[in-house]
C-alpha cells in the first residue's frame, strides 16, 4: 500500500556548501510481531520499514538499515551538504518487500 511520507529541509533557505538538516517522516505502524490484537487475541504479524535510502542527484548519500524497534510513524533525521540544484529521493523498503519512494527538489539560493 502507498504510505504517506514527507521530506522537510531545515533551514528552508540554503545555499551551495551549506550543511542542512533533512527530516524524513512516514506514516507506518512499525509492527514488531510481538503485539497481540486486542480484539482477536492473535499476534499482529511483523511489518516494518527495514531500509531507507537517501539519494541526492542519483548519488547515494545515506542508507539506513532499520529494525522493528523504531517508533510508529518514524522520523529519520540526517544532514546533507548542498552541492548544486537537483533532487533528493528517498526510497524505503518494508520487510514484506514492498518499496515506496518520495522526493523533493533541492533549490539552493546564491
Amino acid at each position: 500500500m502507498e504510505r504517506k511520507s514527507l521530506i522537510k529541509i531545515k533551514p528552508k533557505k540554503y545555499k551551495n556548501g551549506d550543511v542542512v538538516k533533512i527530516n524524513f517522516m512516514v506514516m507506518h505502524p512499525m509492527e514488531t510481531g510481538l503485539r497481540k490484537d486486542k480484539k482477536t487475541g492473535k499476534i499482529v504479524p511483523a511489518q516494518y520499514i527495514n531500509n531507507v535510502k537517501f539519494e541526492y542527484n542519483g548519488k547515494v548519500i545515506t542508507t539506513i538499515n532499520v529494525w522493528e524497534s523504531l517508533s510508529a510513524n518514524p522520523v529519520f533525521t540526517i544532514y546533507m551538504k548542498i552541492d548544486g540544484p537537483g533532487e533528493l529521493k528517498v526510497t524505503f523498503t518494508e520487510n514484506t518487500g514492498e518499496v515506496n519512494e518520495t522526493s523533493t527538489k533541492i533549490k539552493p539560493k546564491g
Binding site: V19, I61, V75, F76, T77, I78, M80, K81, D83
Partner: peptide, 15 residues
Amino acid sequence: VHLTPANGKAIFAAR
C-alpha cells in the same frame, strides 16, 4: 545508519 562524506555532519536522530 551508513553515512558518506556528503552528509557534512555525522548526526542522526530518530525515535
